[in-house]
Design a protein around this nucleic acid. Structure first.
Lengths: 152, 152
DNA sequence: ATCTACATGATGAAAATAATTCAGTATAAA
DNA sequence: TTTATACTGAATTATTTTCATCATGTAGAT
């Protein structure tokens, strides 16, 4: 399915605020409520809209300290990669993990309360993972941009 | 406000799927519909729930190529930092931008269609930004984990 | 210890609002 | 002409929101 201009605007609106009623959306799109309803259902069915979620303010729940950690494994066998990925999946502080090209093998985005919590995470969890060669951590000094709206 | 165990479970459910009805939530939480309703309103009012959004499948809208780009500025004056940040804000391919500690100054998460689109972005947008010293790009080979649920 | 006042958080019923279905119309492509 | 697609407004169904009320625990006065 190829979204048209109206679908693209609808996607923008829903990515910004999914709690808008179909009536509110219909006014912004110059369509009837039913037409909006059917377009949304189509976007859901085709998987373009994957799901709807609540976004939690990380500062308010003591997860305002953001760390990016690059990791090198000692070897690149399939076994080592798979084992590492499985272990990372289980760590709740790791919000994102990418296998990347370049000097390091993985890039992790880690959310914790503060530096002390990061130290604790580092010592008790990250460095206990198997087959890790070296790590390199960068702390977020300022979140300049964090966009959730994909411009389609 | 300090969320209790019920609030934490509610936050987990809403972060996983914000389209559940209060009735569905009430069954999972062993509460009345109204009690669920009031807890949600409270979480919204205190700002713990920041907003509700639709998540779009990036592969389905030709944004499946993920690049992390680290950037060093030629100087670290306030003027240069501010100008760079302002310019980055305007680039729709840049989904996230953090001012970070370490060798590089900024880490950017960039979403484009493919390598050709990244090359185009690099040549026509990124390298035309003022005061950039050097850049270092890593491509995502595999998205191992991408969690949106903050465990509270 | 007992009583009272107050705050908090729960409940079910009722009212208000929104989502969903449906019958019918218009348009464009085969 | 037939078919498919996308639209509309009205009717129906489901959900959210409001409201009156109840239960519980705490702090202060007796």
């Amino acid at each position: 399915m190829q979204p048209d201009a109206i679908d693209r605007k609808l996607l923008k609106l829903l990515q910004e605020n999914s709690k808008q009623t179909n009536k509110e959306l219909s006014l912004q799109l110059n369509l009837s409520v039913t037409a909006v309803y059917e377009r949304i259902k189509k976007l859901e069915k085709t998987g373009i809209i994957h799901r709807y979620v609540a976004i939690v303010n990380k500062e308010k729940v003591d997860k305002g300290f953001v760390v990016f950690c690059q990791i090198k494994l000692v070897q690149h066998t399939k076994e080592y990669l798979t084992k590492f990925e499985k272990e990372v999946m289980a760590l709740q502080e790791v919000m994102e993990c990418y296998h990347i090209s370049g000097e390091y093998d993985y890039l992790l985005k880690i959310l914790v309360k503060d530096m002390a919590a990061f130290r604790e995470f580092m010592v008790t969890k990250l460095t206990t993972l198997q087959h890790i060669g070296s790590t390199q951590s960068s702390f977020s000094i300022n979140e300049v941009k964090c966009e959730t709206v994909l411009k389609v």
